[in-house]
Amino acid sequence: MSQVRTVSDTKRDFYTHHTRPINSIFRRVVEELLVEMHLLSVNADFRYDPFYALGVVTSFERFMQGYRPEADKVSIFQSMCQAIGGDANRYKEDAMALVELAKRCSGTQLIECFRQDMPPEGAQELWEKIEAIAKNDHFKYSRLFAIGVYTFLGESEPQLLEDTEKRDEMLTTVTAGLNLPEEKMKKDLDLYRSNLEKMNQVLEVLEDALAVERQRREKAEAEAKAKTAEATVATETNDEQKETSESGSDA
């Protein structure tokens, strides 16, 4: 019987693949997401699905906005997926395919897919995905799955998520159609939106601090250039005066 991997194993694998330091503001985001993915990957009831993939990709992209250097984000995401035995390309491709499916579905089709026992016209693919989850008695619900569903709804009908009352009604329909815990999903999504707002506030403060530092540095550089220019002019003036004086003495 193989030994279940621990969180420490996964973290060690991650830092083996991604060797560059991670900005302190984002390190907690990365490690919390990594731990969440790890705990799901070792759960006997967990099964990878496109909604979960979309939740992972969306969470990473939203919380890592503004990360510098930008190129390191690719390595971080790939290393996270590798550390839990996953494939970063599969996550991104499945997430993108689900987003494209959402854009092809109207709000009416979306709602009917969660309500009907038969697929609505033009929504066979989505209905089949929903049915597979609803009929799985051992389906492992997760916060990342909820974020994936939430993102899917927003891609299909953005206005559904803009109005609190409509959003709650839609989530009630969704959880009933998927046989998932409504209150748990709503609380998870409330926390997700709250954390995003907090992260955005942190990034705004950081950007303001960077702007102030940039202005200070530019001012210092301008002042240094001005002093250099003044010194150059003074030197040239002294040289000219010296030349004039020597020329007068020769005469």
Score class of each variant (00 low, 15 high):
Ser2Thr: 11
Val4Asp: 09
Arg5Tyr: 08
Arg5Trp: 08
Thr6Glu: 12
Val7Phe: 07
Ser8Lys: 13
Asp13Thr: 09
Phe14Gln: 02
Thr16Gln: 09
His17Asp: 12
Thr19Gln: 07
Arg20Thr: 01
Ile22Gln: 04
Ile22Val: 14
Ile22Trp: 01
Ser24His: 14
Val30Arg: 10
Glu31Trp: 02
Val35Arg: 06
Val35Asn: 02
Glu36Ala: 10
Met37Gly: 14
His38Tyr: 07
Leu39Val: 12
Leu40Asn: 11
Ser41Pro: 04
Phe46Asn: 05
Arg47Cys: 05
Arg47Trp: 07
Tyr48Asp: 10
Asp49Arg: 00
Asp49Trp: 00
Asp49Gly: 01
Tyr52Gln: 12
Ala53Met: 05
Leu54Asp: 09
Val56His: 08
Arg62Tyr: 04
Phe63Gly: 12
Phe63Arg: 10
Gln65Arg: 12
Gly66Asn: 08
Tyr67Glu: 08
Lys73Leu: 15
Val74Cys: 07
Val74Lys: 07
Ser75Tyr: 07
Ser75Asn: 07
Ser75Arg: 11
Phe77Gly: 02
Met80Leu: 14
Cys81Tyr: 00
Gly86Arg: 06
Ala88His: 03
Asn89Tyr: 14
Asp94Phe: 04
Ala95Val: 15
Ala97Cys: 04
Leu98Asn: 00
Leu98Phe: 08
Ala102Tyr: 01
Ala102His: 03
Thr108Ala: 14
Leu110Val: 11
Glu112Pro: 00
Cys113Arg: 11
Phe114Gln: 11
Arg115Ser: 10
Gln116Tyr: 07
Asp117Met: 14
Pro119Arg: 09
Glu121Pro: 00
Glu121Asp: 13
Glu121Met: 13
Gly122Met: 05
Gln124Val: 15
Glu125Val: 09
Leu126Pro: 11
Glu128Tyr: 03
Glu128Lys: 05
Glu128Pro: 00
Lys135Arg: 07
Asn136Phe: 11
His138Asn: 06
Tyr141Gly: 00
Ser142Glu: 01
Arg143Val: 08
Tyr150Cys: 04
Thr151Gly: 10
Phe152Lys: 00
Gly154Met: 06
Glu155Asp: 00
Ser156Thr: 04
Ser156Ala: 14
Gln159Ala: 11
Gln159Tyr: 07
Leu160His: 13
Leu161Pro: 00
Leu161Asn: 02
Lys166Gly: 12
Arg167Ser: 13
Glu169Phe: 12
Met170Glu: 02
Leu171Phe: 10
Thr172Ser: 14
Gly177Leu: 04
Leu178Asn: 02
Asn179Glu: 12
Pro181Cys: 05
Lys187Asn: 10
Lys187Cys: 03
Lys187Trp: 09
Asp188Ser: 13
Asp188Gln: 15
Asp190Pro: 03
Asp190Gly: 09
Leu191Gly: 01
Arg193Asp: 10
Arg193Val: 15
Ser194Leu: 08
Ser194Val: 05
Lys198Thr: 05
Lys198Ala: 14
Met199Thr: 09
Asn200Cys: 06
Val202Arg: 13
Val205Gln: 15
Glu207Val: 10
Leu210Arg: 13
Ala211Pro: 05
Val212Ser: 01
Glu213Leu: 08
Gln215Ile: 13
Gln215Asn: 11
Gln215Asp: 12
Arg216Phe: 10
Arg217Tyr: 12
Glu218Gln: 10
Ala220Arg: 15
Ala220Trp: 07
Glu221Val: 12
Ala222Ile: 06
Ala224Val: 00
Lys227Leu: 06
Thr228Asn: 15
Thr232Ala: 12
Thr232Glu: 13
Val233Met: 06
Thr235Ile: 11
Thr235Ser: 09
Thr237Met: 14
Asn238Met: 15
Glu243Val: 03
Gly248Ser: 13
Gly248Ile: 15
